[in-house]
């Protein structure tokens, strides 16, 4: 555990909590892509199956349970409890175009051809692109609520901090995981355009809106 890993995890936690609280407090999931949230629930489910097979640390187990729990709570709010506020007309990204290639790649490029390891690999690849339906939705509507942009910022920041964590671990522990690193680079690159808008607009007190 190093400071980049820890702040990365806390950033991830902040993102998840911000989104859940935003939806809960406003009683609305307008502007939120339910598809991205389902993909994240799928990511956590397939990655954290090792909760059932191996114990790493109390920290590890606790965070995994919180991530999964919050993720399913978010999906429940969007598709069940607050379904009337869900903006499905703008959430039109075709997720099969992500899941099918990602599933194929997980079978072809993995550390070990075992069910748990293939599912872990699938979750790493899927996480790297799971935000695309949300970004697609924002590009379609041309705007995002400020609180939604805070969510996206912390979610993007988390993987960027993990990149520094991986550099740290390579230098000080001689450890590297090529699958996680490459997927993490892809994931972080997808947020770059958003990071630019966040810094130049949202942090200056303006709403995030895209030119028509």
């Amino acid at each position: 555990m190093n400071i980049f890993r820890l702040t990365g995890d806390l950033s991830h936690l902040a993102a998840i909590i911000i989104l859940l609280l935003k939806i809960w407090k406003s009683r609305s999931c307008a502007g939120i892509s339910g598809k991205s949230q389902v993909l994240f629930a799928l990511v956590f489910t397939t990655r954290y199956l090792d909760l059932l097979t191996s114990f790493i640390s109390l920290y590890n187990t606790t965070m995994k349970v919180i991530y999964i729990g919050c993720s399913y709570a978010t999906v429940y709010l969007i598709y069940m409890k607050l379904k009337a506020t869900y903006d499905g007309n703008h959430d039109t990204f075709r997720v099969e175009f992500l899941i099918v290639p990602v599933g194929g790649l997980a079978f072809l490029v993995n550390h070990d051809f075992s069910p748990l390891e293939i599912l872990w690999t699938f979750s790493i690849y899927l996480e790297s692109v799971a935000i695309l339906p949300q970004l697609f939705m924002i590009s379609k509507t041309g705007e995002a609520e400020t609180i939604t942009t805070h969510y996206l910022f912390f979610l993007g920041l988390y993987r960027a901090l993990y990149l520094i964590n991986w550099i740290w671990r390579f230098y000080f522990e001689g450890f590297f995981d090529m699958i996680a690193i490459v997927a993490g680079v892809v994931q972080t690159i997808l947020y770059c355009d958003f990071f630019y808008l966040y810094v130049t607009k949202v942090l200056k007190g303006k709403k995030l809106s895209l030119p028509a």
């Binding site: 995890d9 991830h12 990655r47 097979t53 790493i56 550390h111 070990d112 995981d177 996680a180």
Partner: peptide
């Protein structure tokens, strides 16, 4: 990544 102890990172 490929060790038997599972994945430490989240």
């Amino acid at each position: 990544g490929s060790d038997d102890d599972g994945h430490d990172e989240l």
